[in-house]
Design a protein around this nucleic acid. Structure first.
Length: 139
DNA sequence: GCCAACGTTGGC
DNA sequence: GCCAACGTTGGC
């Protein structure tokens, strides 16, 4: 199983919106960036990810599971764009902020820190473990 | 609200 | 195939 991170503007699609979708989940549509799309193509059903809020919050707020592999994005007529479906897994006990992540030298290699504009990104097993600990999750 | 960083587009 | 212009993202 691999780990990922999904960024979303809470004013557009929030963790609460994701939770409201329940086990049915929702497609992670709207991505129009090749790198992000390619990561979604690499995802397998059962992979897990962090759900990250941008804008004012800037924190990991929950975990999600990939429930459908990459398929055409229903919000685009252009068949270049694909997306996976994800469902909410667990809310964090404590949000892990970007500030915390930047301050933790163990996390200095994270894509979140080094390429702030990439909206779908891989997370290493070690990074997953550390952030789960900070978030109060068993992981 | 600003702006740096980055990705994409299109003219050549 | 290069690169200038432009648009977007997201932290501050």
């Amino acid at each position: 199983m691999r780990y990922w991170l999904f960024k979303s503007e809470p004013s557009t699609w929030s963790w609460e919106d994701q939770v409201a979708k329940g086990a049915v989940g929702e497609e992670w549509n709207g991505v129009r960036n090749y790198q992000a799309r390619n990561f979604m193509r690499d995802m397998a059903v059962g992979d897990r990810g962090f759900f990250y809020h941008t804008q004012s919050e800037k924190a990991v707020v929950g975990t999600v599971e990939v429930i459908a592999k990459a398929h055409p994005d229903s919000t685009s007529d252009d068949d270049r764009w694909e997306c996976v479906d994800i469902k909410a897994l667990d809310p964090v006990k404590t949000p892990v902020t970007l500030e915390q992540i930047k301050a933790d030298e163990r996390l200095s290699g994270m894509v979140l820190v080094n390429n702030s504009r990439l909206s779908v990104q891989p997370v290493t097993n070690v990074e997953w473990r550390i952030i789960c600990d900070l978030a109060g999750l068993t992981g």
